[in-house]
Design a protein around this nucleic acid. Structure first.
Lengths: 123, 123, 123, 123
DNA sequence: GTGGTCTAGACCACA
DNA sequence: GTGGTCTAGACCACG
Protein backbone atom coordinates (compact mmCIF):
# COMPACT_ATOMS: atom_id res chain seq x y z
CA UNK A 1 0.00 0.00 0.00
CA UNK A 2 1.83 3.03 -1.28
CA UNK A 3 0.40 6.49 -0.96
CA UNK A 4 0.87 9.16 -3.58
CA UNK A 5 0.20 12.85 -3.22
CA UNK A 6 -0.68 15.73 -5.47
CA UNK A 7 0.60 18.79 -3.70
CA UNK A 8 -0.92 21.11 -6.27
CA UNK A 9 -4.40 19.70 -5.80
CA UNK A 10 -7.08 21.71 -4.04
CA UNK A 11 -7.83 18.55 -2.06
CA UNK A 12 -5.91 18.91 1.19
CA UNK A 13 -3.21 16.35 1.93
CA UNK A 14 -4.97 14.92 4.96
CA UNK A 15 -8.01 14.21 2.77
CA UNK A 16 -5.85 12.63 0.10
CA UNK A 17 -4.49 10.29 2.73
CA UNK A 18 -7.97 9.56 4.01
CA UNK A 19 -9.34 8.93 0.52
CA UNK A 20 -6.59 6.55 -0.48
CA UNK A 21 -7.02 4.54 2.68
CA UNK A 22 -10.80 4.35 2.20
CA UNK A 23 -10.30 3.12 -1.37
CA UNK A 24 -7.63 0.73 -0.14
CA UNK A 25 -10.03 -0.80 2.36
CA UNK A 26 -12.86 -1.04 -0.17
CA UNK A 27 -10.60 -2.65 -2.74
CA UNK A 28 -9.22 -5.05 -0.18
CA UNK A 29 -5.66 -3.90 -0.31
CA UNK A 30 -6.22 -3.31 3.39
CA UNK A 31 -8.11 -6.04 5.24
CA UNK A 32 -10.15 -5.66 8.43
CA UNK A 33 -7.92 -6.11 11.44
CA UNK A 34 -4.78 -5.23 9.50
CA UNK A 35 -2.45 -2.79 11.16
CA UNK A 36 -1.92 0.56 9.51
CA UNK A 37 1.50 2.17 9.69
CA UNK A 38 1.98 4.34 12.75
CA UNK A 39 1.48 8.05 12.32
CA UNK A 40 5.20 8.61 12.70
CA UNK A 41 6.15 5.93 10.21
CA UNK A 42 3.71 7.13 7.58
CA UNK A 43 4.79 10.71 8.11
CA UNK A 44 8.43 9.84 7.73
CA UNK A 45 8.20 7.62 4.68
CA UNK A 46 5.93 10.02 2.85
CA UNK A 47 7.61 13.23 3.92
CA UNK A 48 4.34 14.57 5.30
CA UNK A 49 4.14 16.26 8.65
CA UNK A 50 2.97 14.17 11.59
CA UNK A 51 0.11 16.52 12.41
CA UNK A 52 -1.25 16.17 8.91
CA UNK A 53 -1.15 12.39 9.03
CA UNK A 54 -2.68 12.52 12.48
CA UNK A 55 -5.55 14.60 11.12
CA UNK A 56 -6.23 11.99 8.46
CA UNK A 57 -6.23 9.19 11.02
CA UNK A 58 -8.54 11.07 13.34
CA UNK A 59 -10.96 11.62 10.48
CA UNK A 60 -10.83 7.95 9.50
CA UNK A 61 -11.43 6.98 13.11
CA UNK A 62 -14.33 9.36 13.49
CA UNK A 63 -15.92 8.03 10.31
CA UNK A 64 -15.57 4.47 11.54
CA UNK A 65 -13.09 3.20 8.96
CA UNK A 66 -10.32 2.49 11.43
CA UNK A 67 -10.00 1.88 15.13
CA UNK A 68 -7.11 3.33 17.05
CA UNK A 69 -6.04 1.15 19.87
CA UNK A 70 -4.01 2.81 22.58
CA UNK A 71 -1.71 -0.15 22.69
CA UNK A 72 -1.01 -1.14 19.14
CA UNK A 73 -1.79 1.83 16.93
CA UNK A 74 -4.43 1.90 14.22
CA UNK A 75 -6.16 -1.10 12.66
CA UNK A 76 -8.73 -1.36 9.89
CA UNK A 77 -12.24 -1.66 11.30
CA UNK A 78 -14.71 -4.32 10.29
CA UNK A 79 -16.63 -3.49 7.12
CA UNK A 80 -20.09 -2.06 7.41
CA UNK A 81 -19.19 0.07 10.40
CA UNK A 82 -18.93 3.28 8.42
CA UNK A 83 -22.01 5.23 7.39
CA UNK A 84 -22.36 6.99 4.06
CA UNK A 85 -21.88 10.71 4.26
CA UNK A 86 -24.82 12.54 2.73
CA UNK A 87 -22.37 14.67 0.75
CA UNK A 88 -21.17 11.52 -0.93
CA UNK A 89 -24.60 10.95 -2.40
CA UNK A 90 -24.78 14.52 -3.64
CA UNK A 91 -21.34 14.18 -5.13
CA UNK A 92 -22.25 10.92 -6.82
CA UNK A 93 -25.30 12.56 -8.34
CA UNK A 94 -23.11 15.39 -9.58
CA UNK A 95 -20.50 13.15 -11.19
CA UNK A 96 -23.08 11.01 -12.91
CA UNK A 97 -24.60 14.19 -14.28
CA UNK A 98 -21.21 15.24 -15.57
CA UNK A 99 -20.60 11.89 -17.19
CA UNK A 100 -23.94 12.02 -18.94
CA UNK A 101 -23.32 15.53 -20.20
CA UNK A 102 -20.02 14.39 -21.62
CA UNK A 103 -22.04 12.12 -23.88
CA UNK A 104 -21.87 8.78 -22.12
CA UNK A 105 -24.92 6.56 -22.36
CA UNK A 106 -26.74 4.96 -19.45
CA UNK A 107 -25.12 1.62 -20.21
CA UNK A 108 -21.64 3.05 -20.47
CA UNK A 109 -21.98 4.78 -17.12
CA UNK A 110 -23.35 1.69 -15.41
CA UNK A 111 -20.59 -0.41 -16.93
CA UNK A 112 -18.05 2.07 -15.62
CA UNK A 113 -19.53 1.94 -12.12
CA UNK A 114 -19.58 -1.86 -12.25
CA UNK A 115 -15.95 -1.91 -13.33
CA UNK A 116 -14.96 0.41 -10.51
CA UNK A 117 -16.87 -1.78 -8.10
CA UNK A 118 -15.23 -4.95 -9.30
CA UNK A 119 -11.78 -3.45 -8.97
CA UNK A 120 -11.90 -4.61 -5.39
CA UNK A 121 -13.70 -7.90 -5.93
CA UNK A 122 -11.25 -9.77 -8.10
CA UNK A 123 -8.52 -9.63 -5.50
CA UNK B 1 -34.50 26.76 -11.18
CA UNK B 2 -33.83 27.92 -7.65
CA UNK B 3 -30.36 27.85 -6.19
CA UNK B 4 -29.74 27.00 -2.57
CA UNK B 5 -26.53 27.52 -0.65
CA UNK B 6 -24.84 26.01 2.34
CA UNK B 7 -22.55 28.69 3.64
CA UNK B 8 -21.08 26.40 6.24
CA UNK B 9 -20.01 23.85 3.65
CA UNK B 10 -16.36 23.40 2.75
CA UNK B 11 -17.44 23.57 -0.89
CA UNK B 12 -16.92 27.17 -1.99
CA UNK B 13 -19.98 29.12 -3.05
CA UNK B 14 -18.86 29.52 -6.64
CA UNK B 15 -18.57 25.74 -6.93
CA UNK B 16 -21.99 25.28 -5.35
CA UNK B 17 -23.42 27.51 -8.06
CA UNK B 18 -21.54 25.65 -10.77
CA UNK B 19 -22.57 22.25 -9.44
CA UNK B 20 -26.24 23.10 -9.23
CA UNK B 21 -26.26 24.41 -12.77
CA UNK B 22 -24.49 21.31 -14.07
CA UNK B 23 -27.02 19.07 -12.34
CA UNK B 24 -29.82 21.28 -13.62
CA UNK B 25 -28.61 20.81 -17.20
CA UNK B 26 -28.15 17.07 -16.78
CA UNK B 27 -31.59 16.68 -15.26
CA UNK B 28 -33.11 18.86 -17.98
CA UNK B 29 -34.35 21.60 -15.77
CA UNK B 30 -32.14 23.72 -17.99
CA UNK B 31 -32.38 22.95 -21.72
CA UNK B 32 -29.74 23.60 -24.39
CA UNK B 33 -30.17 27.11 -25.74
CA UNK B 34 -31.99 28.32 -22.66
CA UNK B 35 -30.87 31.65 -21.29
CA UNK B 36 -29.32 31.77 -17.84
CA UNK B 37 -29.97 34.76 -15.59
CA UNK B 38 -27.41 37.53 -15.89
CA UNK B 39 -24.63 37.61 -13.37
CA UNK B 40 -26.09 40.70 -11.81
CA UNK B 41 -29.59 39.24 -11.57
CA UNK B 42 -28.42 35.98 -10.05
CA UNK B 43 -26.19 37.80 -7.60
CA UNK B 44 -28.99 40.05 -6.48
CA UNK B 45 -31.71 37.48 -6.05
CA UNK B 46 -29.47 35.10 -4.14
CA UNK B 47 -27.58 37.69 -2.12
CA UNK B 48 -24.24 36.43 -3.40
CA UNK B 49 -21.37 38.69 -4.35
CA UNK B 50 -21.19 39.37 -8.11
CA UNK B 51 -17.54 38.34 -8.21
CA UNK B 52 -18.54 34.92 -6.91
CA UNK B 53 -21.29 34.41 -9.48
CA UNK B 54 -18.94 35.59 -12.20
CA UNK B 55 -16.37 33.00 -11.12
CA UNK B 56 -18.98 30.25 -11.41
CA UNK B 57 -20.00 31.37 -14.91
CA UNK B 58 -16.39 31.56 -16.06
CA UNK B 59 -15.82 28.03 -14.84
CA UNK B 60 -18.97 26.75 -16.56
CA UNK B 61 -17.93 28.42 -19.77
CA UNK B 62 -14.42 27.05 -19.62
CA UNK B 63 -15.76 23.55 -19.00
CA UNK B 64 -18.09 23.85 -21.98
CA UNK B 65 -21.41 23.75 -20.14
CA UNK B 66 -22.49 27.22 -21.16
CA UNK B 67 -21.72 29.66 -23.95
CA UNK B 68 -21.53 33.36 -23.34
CA UNK B 69 -22.80 35.51 -26.11
CA UNK B 70 -22.12 39.20 -26.01
CA UNK B 71 -25.71 40.08 -26.85
CA UNK B 72 -27.84 37.52 -25.09
CA UNK B 73 -25.71 36.74 -22.05
CA UNK B 74 -25.12 33.12 -21.09
CA UNK B 75 -26.97 30.21 -22.66
CA UNK B 76 -26.82 26.48 -22.01
CA UNK B 77 -24.56 24.71 -24.51
CA UNK B 78 -25.56 21.64 -26.49
CA UNK B 79 -25.07 18.35 -24.71
CA UNK B 80 -21.88 16.46 -25.33
CA UNK B 81 -19.81 19.62 -25.55
CA UNK B 82 -18.52 19.38 -22.01
CA UNK B 83 -15.40 17.44 -21.21
CA UNK B 84 -15.17 15.15 -18.21
CA UNK B 85 -12.82 16.34 -15.54
CA UNK B 86 -10.16 13.73 -14.98
CA UNK B 87 -10.68 14.01 -11.23
CA UNK B 88 -14.21 12.78 -11.78
CA UNK B 89 -13.08 9.23 -12.29
CA UNK B 90 -11.07 9.18 -9.09
CA UNK B 91 -13.96 10.73 -7.25
CA UNK B 92 -16.36 8.15 -8.63
CA UNK B 93 -14.03 5.40 -7.52
CA UNK B 94 -13.90 6.94 -4.06
CA UNK B 95 -17.65 7.30 -3.70
CA UNK B 96 -18.30 3.77 -4.87
CA UNK B 97 -15.75 2.61 -2.31
CA UNK B 98 -17.58 4.49 0.40
CA UNK B 99 -20.93 3.04 -0.63
CA UNK B 100 -19.50 -0.45 -0.60
CA UNK B 101 -17.97 0.01 2.83
CA UNK B 102 -21.33 1.18 4.14
CA UNK B 103 -22.54 -2.33 3.38
CA UNK B 104 -24.28 -1.88 0.03
CA UNK B 105 -24.10 -4.76 -2.43
CA UNK B 106 -23.02 -4.52 -6.07
CA UNK B 107 -26.64 -4.57 -7.19
CA UNK B 108 -27.76 -1.91 -4.74
CA UNK B 109 -24.97 0.39 -5.84
CA UNK B 110 -25.69 -0.09 -9.53
CA UNK B 111 -29.39 0.43 -8.91
CA UNK B 112 -28.56 3.65 -7.09
CA UNK B 113 -26.40 4.86 -9.97
CA UNK B 114 -29.13 3.97 -12.45
CA UNK B 115 -31.68 5.84 -10.36
CA UNK B 116 -29.44 8.88 -10.20
CA UNK B 117 -29.00 8.68 -13.96
CA UNK B 118 -32.69 8.37 -14.64
CA UNK B 119 -33.52 11.31 -12.39
CA UNK B 120 -33.05 13.45 -15.47
CA UNK B 121 -34.37 11.08 -18.09
CA UNK B 122 -37.96 10.76 -17.06
CA UNK B 123 -38.56 14.47 -17.33
CA UNK C 1 -18.37 35.87 27.70
CA UNK C 2 -14.91 35.44 29.15
CA UNK C 3 -13.07 32.17 28.84
CA UNK C 4 -10.81 30.82 31.54
CA UNK C 5 -8.30 28.03 31.24
CA UNK C 6 -6.69 25.52 33.52
CA UNK C 7 -3.40 24.67 31.89
CA UNK C 8 -2.64 21.98 34.44
CA UNK C 9 -5.88 20.13 33.75
CA UNK C 10 -5.84 16.81 31.89
CA UNK C 11 -8.71 18.22 29.81
CA UNK C 12 -7.05 19.61 26.67
CA UNK C 13 -7.37 23.31 26.00
CA UNK C 14 -9.43 22.89 22.87
CA UNK C 15 -11.96 20.88 24.87
CA UNK C 16 -12.01 23.49 27.61
CA UNK C 17 -12.89 26.08 24.99
CA UNK C 18 -15.55 23.81 23.54
CA UNK C 19 -17.07 23.04 26.92
CA UNK C 20 -17.29 26.64 28.00
CA UNK C 21 -18.98 27.62 24.78
CA UNK C 22 -21.48 24.76 25.06
CA UNK C 23 -22.31 25.83 28.61
CA UNK C 24 -22.49 29.44 27.47
CA UNK C 25 -25.05 28.55 24.82
CA UNK C 26 -27.10 26.41 27.21
CA UNK C 27 -27.10 29.12 29.84
CA UNK C 28 -28.01 31.76 27.30
CA UNK C 29 -24.92 33.84 27.63
CA UNK C 30 -24.62 33.12 23.92
CA UNK C 31 -27.83 33.37 21.92
CA UNK C 32 -28.64 31.60 18.63
CA UNK C 33 -27.46 33.72 15.74
CA UNK C 34 -24.95 35.58 17.85
CA UNK C 35 -21.50 35.95 16.36
CA UNK C 36 -18.63 34.25 18.12
CA UNK C 37 -15.24 35.95 18.16
CA UNK C 38 -13.09 35.07 15.16
CA UNK C 39 -10.50 32.38 15.67
CA UNK C 40 -7.76 34.96 15.49
CA UNK C 41 -9.41 37.31 17.95
CA UNK C 42 -10.11 34.59 20.49
CA UNK C 43 -6.59 33.24 20.09
CA UNK C 44 -5.05 36.62 20.65
CA UNK C 45 -7.09 37.75 23.63
CA UNK C 46 -6.69 34.43 25.41
CA UNK C 47 -3.09 33.81 24.50
CA UNK C 48 -3.98 30.44 22.98
CA UNK C 49 -2.59 29.31 19.66
CA UNK C 50 -4.83 29.75 16.61
CA UNK C 51 -4.69 26.08 15.71
CA UNK C 52 -5.97 25.14 19.13
CA UNK C 53 -8.87 27.56 18.92
CA UNK C 54 -9.54 26.34 15.41
CA UNK C 55 -9.73 22.78 16.66
CA UNK C 56 -12.34 23.79 19.23
CA UNK C 57 -14.42 25.58 16.60
CA UNK C 58 -14.24 22.66 14.21
CA UNK C 59 -15.45 20.35 16.96
CA UNK C 60 -18.30 22.69 17.85
CA UNK C 61 -19.24 22.90 14.20
CA UNK C 62 -19.16 19.17 13.73
CA UNK C 63 -21.33 18.67 16.79
CA UNK C 64 -23.85 21.17 15.50
CA UNK C 65 -23.46 23.84 18.18
CA UNK C 66 -22.18 26.52 15.84
CA UNK C 67 -22.27 27.23 12.13
CA UNK C 68 -19.27 28.65 10.39
CA UNK C 69 -20.23 30.92 7.58
CA UNK C 70 -17.55 31.50 5.01
CA UNK C 71 -18.43 35.16 4.93
CA UNK C 72 -18.92 36.23 8.48
CA UNK C 73 -17.17 33.74 10.72
CA UNK C 74 -18.89 31.57 13.30
CA UNK C 75 -22.37 32.03 14.72
CA UNK C 76 -24.31 30.11 17.36
CA UNK C 77 -26.64 27.56 15.76
CA UNK C 78 -30.31 27.24 16.60
CA UNK C 79 -30.99 25.13 19.66
CA UNK C 80 -31.99 21.53 19.24
CA UNK C 81 -29.61 20.99 16.34
CA UNK C 82 -27.03 19.18 18.40
CA UNK C 83 -27.43 15.52 19.34
CA UNK C 84 -26.42 14.10 22.69
CA UNK C 85 -23.19 12.17 22.61
CA UNK C 86 -23.65 8.69 24.03
CA UNK C 87 -20.55 9.26 26.16
CA UNK C 88 -22.37 12.12 27.84
CA UNK C 89 -25.01 9.74 29.12
CA UNK C 90 -22.37 7.36 30.44
CA UNK C 91 -20.56 10.23 32.08
CA UNK C 92 -23.77 11.49 33.66
CA UNK C 93 -24.44 8.05 35.07
CA UNK C 94 -20.93 7.98 36.47
CA UNK C 95 -21.15 11.37 38.13
CA UNK C 96 -24.50 10.64 39.69
CA UNK C 97 -23.02 7.43 41.05
CA UNK C 98 -20.15 9.42 42.54
CA UNK C 99 -22.49 11.93 44.12
CA UNK C 100 -24.51 9.17 45.69
CA UNK C 101 -21.45 7.46 47.06
CA UNK C 102 -20.36 10.72 48.61
CA UNK C 103 -23.47 10.50 50.74
CA UNK C 104 -25.92 12.75 48.90
CA UNK C 105 -29.55 11.72 48.97
CA UNK C 106 -31.81 11.36 45.95
CA UNK C 107 -33.46 14.68 46.70
CA UNK C 108 -30.20 16.51 47.15
CA UNK C 109 -28.91 15.26 43.83
CA UNK C 110 -32.12 16.13 41.98
CA UNK C 111 -32.13 19.56 43.60
CA UNK C 112 -28.56 20.05 42.46
CA UNK C 113 -29.43 19.06 38.90
CA UNK C 114 -32.44 21.35 38.94
CA UNK C 115 -30.29 24.21 40.19
CA UNK C 116 -27.73 23.64 37.47
CA UNK C 117 -30.51 23.55 34.91
CA UNK C 118 -32.05 26.76 36.13
CA UNK C 119 -28.72 28.55 35.98
CA UNK C 120 -29.56 29.23 32.35
CA UNK C 121 -33.26 29.84 32.75
CA UNK C 122 -33.33 32.87 34.97
CA UNK C 123 -31.37 34.95 32.51
CA UNK D 1 -19.11 -8.03 37.75
CA UNK D 2 -17.61 -8.13 34.27
CA UNK D 3 -15.45 -5.32 32.99
CA UNK D 4 -15.55 -4.21 29.38
CA UNK D 5 -13.08 -1.96 27.63
CA UNK D 6 -13.07 0.38 24.71
CA UNK D 7 -9.47 0.55 23.58
CA UNK D 8 -10.24 3.19 21.01
CA UNK D 9 -11.72 5.54 23.59
CA UNK D 10 -9.86 8.66 24.67
CA UNK D 11 -10.58 7.61 28.25
CA UNK D 12 -7.49 5.78 29.46
CA UNK D 13 -7.88 2.13 30.41
CA UNK D 14 -7.06 2.66 34.06
CA UNK D 15 -9.87 5.22 34.28
CA UNK D 16 -12.25 2.87 32.52
CA UNK D 17 -11.52 0.29 35.19
CA UNK D 18 -11.94 2.84 37.97
CA UNK D 19 -15.21 4.17 36.51
CA UNK D 20 -16.79 0.77 36.13
CA UNK D 21 -15.94 -0.15 39.69
CA UNK D 22 -17.34 3.12 41.02
CA UNK D 23 -20.58 2.56 39.10
CA UNK D 24 -20.62 -1.04 40.30
CA UNK D 25 -20.42 0.12 43.92
CA UNK D 26 -23.06 2.80 43.44
CA UNK D 27 -25.41 0.38 41.76
CA UNK D 28 -24.78 -2.24 44.44
CA UNK D 29 -23.28 -4.85 42.23
CA UNK D 30 -20.35 -4.50 44.61
CA UNK D 31 -21.27 -4.29 48.29
CA UNK D 32 -19.25 -2.70 51.12
CA UNK D 33 -16.82 -5.26 52.52
CA UNK D 34 -16.86 -7.35 49.36
CA UNK D 35 -13.48 -8.50 48.10
CA UNK D 36 -12.29 -7.26 44.76
CA UNK D 37 -10.24 -9.57 42.53
CA UNK D 38 -6.50 -9.28 43.01
CA UNK D 39 -4.60 -7.06 40.62
CA UNK D 40 -2.97 -10.09 39.07
CA UNK D 41 -6.27 -11.93 38.61
CA UNK D 42 -8.05 -8.94 37.10
CA UNK D 43 -5.11 -8.25 34.82
CA UNK D 44 -5.01 -11.81 33.59
CA UNK D 45 -8.69 -12.37 32.95
CA UNK D 46 -9.09 -9.07 31.12
CA UNK D 47 -5.81 -9.11 29.23
CA UNK D 48 -4.79 -5.76 30.67
CA UNK D 49 -1.29 -4.94 31.85
CA UNK D 50 -0.83 -5.31 35.62
CA UNK D 51 0.60 -1.80 35.87
CA UNK D 52 -2.63 -0.43 34.45
CA UNK D 53 -4.86 -2.34 36.86
CA UNK D 54 -2.62 -1.30 39.72
CA UNK D 55 -3.00 2.34 38.74
CA UNK D 56 -6.78 1.99 38.83
CA UNK D 57 -6.71 0.40 42.29
CA UNK D 58 -4.38 3.08 43.63
CA UNK D 59 -6.75 5.73 42.38
CA UNK D 60 -9.78 4.02 43.89
CA UNK D 61 -7.97 3.70 47.20
CA UNK D 62 -6.87 7.30 47.18
CA UNK D 63 -10.42 8.43 46.44
CA UNK D 64 -11.76 6.33 49.29
CA UNK D 65 -13.79 3.85 47.29
CA UNK D 66 -11.78 0.83 48.33
CA UNK D 67 -9.52 -0.16 51.19
CA UNK D 68 -6.46 -2.28 50.67
CA UNK D 69 -5.66 -4.69 53.41
CA UNK D 70 -2.34 -6.45 53.38
CA UNK D 71 -3.89 -9.81 54.10
CA UNK D 72 -7.15 -9.85 52.19
CA UNK D 73 -6.35 -7.64 49.23
CA UNK D 74 -8.76 -4.88 48.22
CA UNK D 75 -12.26 -4.59 49.65
CA UNK D 76 -15.06 -2.14 48.93
CA UNK D 77 -15.17 0.67 51.50
CA UNK D 78 -18.29 1.74 53.38
CA UNK D 79 -20.50 4.22 51.55
CA UNK D 80 -20.05 7.85 52.30
CA UNK D 81 -16.31 7.52 52.67
CA UNK D 82 -15.52 8.79 49.20
CA UNK D 83 -15.09 12.47 48.52
CA UNK D 84 -16.61 14.15 45.48
CA UNK D 85 -14.10 15.31 42.96
CA UNK D 86 -14.48 19.04 42.48
CA UNK D 87 -14.44 18.55 38.71
CA UNK D 88 -17.62 16.54 39.04
CA UNK D 89 -19.73 19.62 39.55
CA UNK D 90 -18.37 21.30 36.44
CA UNK D 91 -18.85 18.11 34.49
CA UNK D 92 -22.43 17.78 35.69
CA UNK D 93 -23.11 21.34 34.63
CA UNK D 94 -21.64 20.57 31.22
CA UNK D 95 -23.65 17.41 30.69
CA UNK D 96 -26.88 19.05 31.75
CA UNK D 97 -26.11 21.84 29.28
CA UNK D 98 -25.64 19.30 26.53
CA UNK D 99 -28.88 17.55 27.36
CA UNK D 100 -30.74 20.83 27.32
CA UNK D 101 -29.27 21.83 23.99
CA UNK D 102 -30.35 18.52 22.54
CA UNK D 103 -33.90 19.68 23.15
CA UNK D 104 -34.78 17.99 26.42
CA UNK D 105 -37.04 19.84 28.83
CA UNK D 106 -36.34 20.45 32.51
CA UNK D 107 -38.69 17.62 33.48
CA UNK D 108 -37.18 15.18 31.04
CA UNK D 109 -33.70 15.91 32.31
CA UNK D 110 -34.69 15.55 35.96
CA UNK D 111 -36.54 12.33 35.15
CA UNK D 112 -33.41 11.04 33.46
CA UNK D 113 -31.26 11.92 36.46
CA UNK D 114 -33.76 10.27 38.79
CA UNK D 115 -33.77 7.17 36.64
CA UNK D 116 -29.99 7.04 36.64
CA UNK D 117 -30.02 7.43 40.40
CA UNK D 118 -32.60 4.70 40.92
CA UNK D 119 -30.69 2.29 38.71
CA UNK D 120 -28.86 1.26 41.84
CA UNK D 121 -31.64 1.62 44.39
CA UNK D 122 -34.07 -0.97 43.17
CA UNK D 123 -31.53 -3.75 43.55
C1' DG E 1 -11.01 40.31 6.32
C1' DT E 2 -12.13 35.16 7.21
C1' DG E 3 -11.34 30.04 8.01
C1' DG E 4 -8.44 26.14 6.35
C1' DT E 5 -4.14 24.01 5.88
C1' DC E 6 0.62 22.88 6.60
C1' DT E 7 5.34 22.71 8.74
C1' DA E 8 8.95 21.76 12.22
C1' DG E 9 9.60 21.09 16.40
C1' DA E 10 8.27 20.01 21.29
C1' DC E 11 6.07 17.81 25.50
C1' DC E 12 2.97 14.60 27.76
C1' DA E 13 0.17 10.59 29.30
C1' DC E 14 -0.63 5.96 28.45
C1' DA E 15 0.58 1.04 28.20
C1' DG F 1 6.93 2.61 21.82
C1' DT F 2 2.25 4.87 20.73
C1' DG F 3 -1.25 8.64 19.85
C1' DG F 4 -2.62 13.29 21.56
C1' DT F 5 -1.70 17.98 22.20
C1' DC F 6 0.34 22.47 21.71
C1' DT F 7 3.22 26.36 19.80
C1' DA F 8 4.85 29.86 16.50
C1' DG F 9 4.86 30.95 12.29
C1' DA F 10 3.49 30.61 7.35
C1' DC F 11 0.66 30.34 2.97
C1' DC F 12 -3.66 29.89 0.51
C1' DA F 13 -8.46 30.17 -1.30
C1' DC F 14 -12.59 32.39 -0.56
C1' DG F 15 -15.70 36.39 -0.58
Amino acid sequence: MILTFDFSSPVPIYLQIRNQIVIGIAEKKLMPGEKLPTIRALAEESGINMMTVSKAYQLLKQEGYIITDRRSGAVVADSGKASVRPESLDALRLYISELRLSGMSREEILALCARLYEEGEKK
